[in-house]
Design a binder for these strands. Structure first.
Lengths: 138, 138
DNA sequence: TTATTATCAATAATGATTACTAATTAGATT
DNA sequence: AATCTAATTAGTAATCATTATTGATAATAA
């Protein structure tokens, strides 16, 4: 099966790369409809699934799934008040995560202990739940 | 609204406390039906929602929701091969998480940087995805 | 015991996501 | 450039987890 480039894929990825708002499939559908008025929601879901398989995007499974084209290692802060999701940089996290046996004196070891014993980690997601600054000011 | 203790609540919580298997609502329904043959799935969902509000249990929002009566700070390892979820102890994690300004020399500070600037964290969930030891041996 | 009201079982409704199918189209071949 | 063909799509139906509804039941108060 040779993959074909289509305007649907192109425009969805372009939109995801242009935003940090972590839109849902529905949000993406409503947005790209401005350029592709005949696109269907099923197409959006299918294209998002293929992007996820190819690791072009990340799925955030909090209530309805939301999507993020930022594939650099980072985490998310979910405001329980406004439901916005904010990107969080956690430098050096994944890089060190499988280094059991190495860096014994390292900070990671001290904090996380020997939790890697359950298996081999391919990936991780950290979700922080709280109230964002904007909502705290209200 | 004064809460009433019922056998449905009692048996669901007893079951959740007895297991580390992170069952879904459906799993719980099938299990507690052995003791309560007439219980309905809607009742299970409603009771789980009240337990979650009261922080008696944790909801793990990975694909279908799964539930955990272990409310000590801990994280989860999800085996992408067998779909089992394993508990992970990460000592001292939450305890230190909001201490921005304190422990400046601490390990947490070094690793996580100043990500707390987006807001006040009430809670967090870490999901590790990978392949568990059992599946690696197959 | 009777009244009140939280809770329940049963079932219908909802809403996100997936599956299906006939029509379309990207890219290869002529 | 025209044709071919298999990947992709639009439109729609189906699925499945979860929530809402409703009349019946049962726990607690009066």
């Amino acid at each position: 099966m040779i993959e074909r480039m289509t305007s649907q894929k192109e425009i969805i990825l372009k939109y995801l790369k242009s935003t940090t708002s972590h839109p849902s499939a529905e949000d993406i559908y409503l947005e790209v409809r401005k350029e592709l008025p005949r696109i269907s929601l099923g197409t959006v879901y299918r294209i998002l699934a293929t992007f996820k398989n190819k690791k072009k995007i990340i799925e955030i499974a909090h209530e309805v799934s939301r999507y993020d084209a930022n594939t650099d290692p980072h985490s998310h802060f979910i405001c329980e008040s406004c439901d916005n999701i904010y990107d969080i940089e956690i430098p050096n996290f994944k890089k060190n995560i499988n280094k059991r046996g190495h860096n014994k004196a390292s900070c990671l070891k001290k904090i996380f202990g020997d939790f890697i014993k359950v298996g081999k980690i391919n990936n991780y997601q950290i979700y922080f739940y709280g109230k964002c600054k904007k909502c705290s000011k209200k």
